[in-house]
Amino acid sequence: MANLQVSLGKIQFSNPILTASGTFGTGEEFSPFLDLNHLGGIVTKAVTREPRAGNPHPRIAETSAGMLNSIGLANVGVDRFIAEKLPFLKGLKCRVIVNVAGKTIDEFAEVIRRIESAGGMDGYEINVSCPNVKEGGMAFGTNPDVTAEITKKARQVTDKFLTVKLTPNVTSITEIAIAAENNGADALTVINTLVGMAVDIRSRKPKLATITGGLSGPAIKPVALAKVFQVAGAVKIPVIASGGIMNVKDVIEFLITGASAVQIGTANFVNPKISEKLVDDLDSYCEEHQINSIEEIIGTLKLND
């Protein structure tokens, strides 16, 4: 057994395999398929202050090697989350990070504060990158000042691990990354989905009710790698990679490029056991390649002089 433990500043994960928000519910949905405690951690579906019904149908469409979604942060709201989901999550031995979203700058801190009052979780992921909501979401994460403000306010209500999930739909992702780092983020999640679109040529209608949605899956992996490379080179805090990871080779690519951990997203829909399998595959990979500790390979990308 190789040592798969990774340290991301103030928090350790038993291995670098996490699940991406919005693709794993609150973990319970996947209990029939795998042992959640074998994962490094799970990141919950976004939680907002008020319940949200989400966007109209159709919300998803398949594209080449990927999918578009426009769920619109459908969730039961923080109070029901605390009452109905938190007890299950507290019983888990793996790390649990709660993804938090909001329509206003203050809402993020308010959601975290309420969860902290209920005992809190291991950490929070600030979602300033959802492309599918009219208010907040990506509109916040494309603005460094707003990202800074939201991160600062979240920092004021918790000492726990805080990662800010960045959108790739910007001119300069490093500018946003630095704004989050300077205002108390412990890590950065790179990347949320890319704005995309698909058209049904028979009806001549967009395939999503919201016209555009967020593209995920293996189609976006090269974009995610490039963004991880850029962000890891611009900040001192750890980077958690997300974007199209399907197999252990993809995991290794992101770790070499500078990510300290990874999130598995769309692949969970294709194979509900994939996250646990990747933990095993990563262990086998380390044994085969005589890697004693997975941290040895993080950020070891070889560049020409």
Partner: peptide, 24 residues
């Protein structure tokens, strides 16, 4: 029948509107 990704409640892609308009 509808499009869906996971089939077991995680992706939330397969919504259908409630008749009373209270959500999905």
């Amino acid at each position: 029948e509808t499009m869906m990704a996971c089939g077991f409640g995680a992706c939330m892609g397969c919504n259908v509107e409630k008749a009373d308009g209270s959500g999905y």
